[in-house]
Amino acid sequence: MDEMQEIIKNYVIKEYVEDDTELTYDTPLISGGIVDSFSMVSLKRFLENKYSISIPDDRATPEAFDSVNKICALVREFVK
């Protein structure tokens, strides 16, 4: 567990989970129906603001956003 994983997981829970669904770092977010493709926008903007990065639209795909671990991997590519 690292800090980025926890921050992103907590954001996803606060933003998208409206019942007692348990979330792990590998829970499928988009394909699992927890985050709809529309709502990815706020997740992308949150990550960009939080880590002072810019994620190109063609990299912000449902596959790349499909779990906390995948999101962390994507963010790390852009963090300097």
Binding site: R45, F46, N49
Partner: peptide, 21 residues
């Protein structure tokens, strides 16, 4: 245009989104 959502009838969440964007 970009699209984002807020939780149903949740005005605090809407305000957060207005600030974000």
């Amino acid at each position: 245009a970009m699209h984002d959502t807020f939780k149903h009838s949740d005005m605090e969440h809407l305000e957060e989104k207005l600030q974000l964007h």
